[in-house]
């Protein structure tokens, strides 16, 4: 396909105003490391932005399975953890650089995803039972890694801080990590749009809506569900590699935790399942709110009021409000309000 054809496929049906808004957002994000230095505590704001982009990226990856193909995974920490551990262990133990290790990391995560998908879809383990299967695998792997000496077992795996380290070994300042995750998030956004506007995207939506009717319309449901898991787990593992090198420490207890799996799902749910902007918007809201609550708790602590759980309660309330009033997420509502969804008549 020629470049013009690709561009047309990506932008068809998107109002010009939405494209313009996207371009402005992209420009702002590109300039953010410079802009943040104009603010007091600029490094702090950059670290917040890094989190936003990271959760937008892994949310996008998770959304392929749940939002597009309708397969609920509550075990995405498995792919994050596997990706991170494999690339980090290859680097720390064997000196294999992350740009090479990432291939091993992604392949193994996809193998794990493929195995879960095969078991789930071949034996018709659907809905919440499939979600349980994904949790079981993450938990099982956590226990395995707790005893896996090569990666430090329960004592954890650490990457040295290398002040002189090369960017080619994913060593450097937060600005480097910011641009790496930004590029990943941008590519994932475009890739998902490309998938969604093609045959595969239509097939996924059909499977999400009604697998039996999809099959009657000629869709090999097993094959396309498998593709969703493979793509989603591979992309998630990339995020895991990034996160391992950014934080420089890994513990089975947290890397494969249920909490981490849930964290992956929040941004797309709040932003809008199955939408492309949803994970981005949801992540901005969540990380933003989280930061707000943390700051508030700190202020309250200055007055001697203990409010340590404020962030968790805040997340809980935000989720509750979404579930009660904006079941489809914030983006579909915002997009409608902004007039970005003209091509689709949504009235009941």
């Amino acid at each position: 396909m020629r470049a013009g054809g690709v561009w047309q496929r990506l932008t068809e049906g998107v109002p010009a105003r939405a494209l313009a808004a996207l371009a402005v957002l992209a420009a702002l994000l590109l300039a953010a490391p410079v802009l943040s230095q104009l603010l007091p505590a600029g490094d702090y704001w950059l670290s917040i932005l890094i989190l936003m982009v990271y959760f937008a990226y892994i949310g996008q990856a998770w959304n392929i399975m749940m939002g597009f193909a309708g397969q609920l995974s509550l075990g995405h920490a498995l792919y994050l953890g596997l990706g991170g551990y494999i690339a980090a262990a290859l680097y720390a133990n064997l000196g294999v650089g992350p740009w090479l290790g990432v291939f091993a990391a992604v392949c193994i995560a996809m193998l794990a995803g493929g195995l879960i998908g095969y078991l789930g879809f071949r034996f018709s383990v659907a809905g919440v039972y499939f979600a349980l299967l994904t949790i079981a695998f993450a938990e099982f792997t956590r226990i395995l890694f707790d005893h896996f000496k090569w990666v430090g077992a329960s004592g954890g795996l650490f990457l040295k801080v290398e002040p002189e380290g090369s960017p080619f070994n994913l060593q450097g300042s937060p600005v480097l990590f910011y641009y790496v995750i930004l590029v990943l998030a941008a590519l994932a956004f475009v890739f998902c749009r490309w998938l969604l506007t093609g045959r595969l995207g239509y097939y996924w939506l059909a499977i999400r809506e009604d697998p039996e009717a999809a099959q009657a319309a000629g869709i090999n449901v097993f094959r396309y569900k498998m593709l969703a898991v493979l793509i989603s787990s591979g992309l998630t593992a990339l995020g895991g590699v990034w996160s391992a090198f950014y934080y420089k420490n890994l513990f089975p207890e947290s890397a494969f935790s249920m909490g981490r799996s849930i964290e992956v799902t929040l941004a797309p749910i709040i932003g809008g399942l199955g939408t492309l902007v949803g994970p981005i918007l949801g992540s901005a809201l969540l990380v933003g709110l989280g930061d707000l609550f943390t700051t508030m708790a700190e202020r309250l602590a200055e007055y001697g009021i203990k409010a340590g759980g404020l962030k968790q309660i805040g997340y809980g309330v935000a989720l509750l409000l979404i579930v009660m009033f904006r079941r489809e997420g914030v983006w579909p509502w915002l997009a409608h309000w902004l007039g970005f969804d003209r091509h689709r008549e949504n009235q009941p």
């Binding site: 999400r208 009717a213 008549e345």
Partner: peptide, 10 residues
């Protein structure tokens, strides 16, 4: 059993 959440054309 149409795909309820999708448009008629989709």
């Amino acid at each position: 059993r149409p795909f309820m959440g999708l448009t008629v054309e989709e």
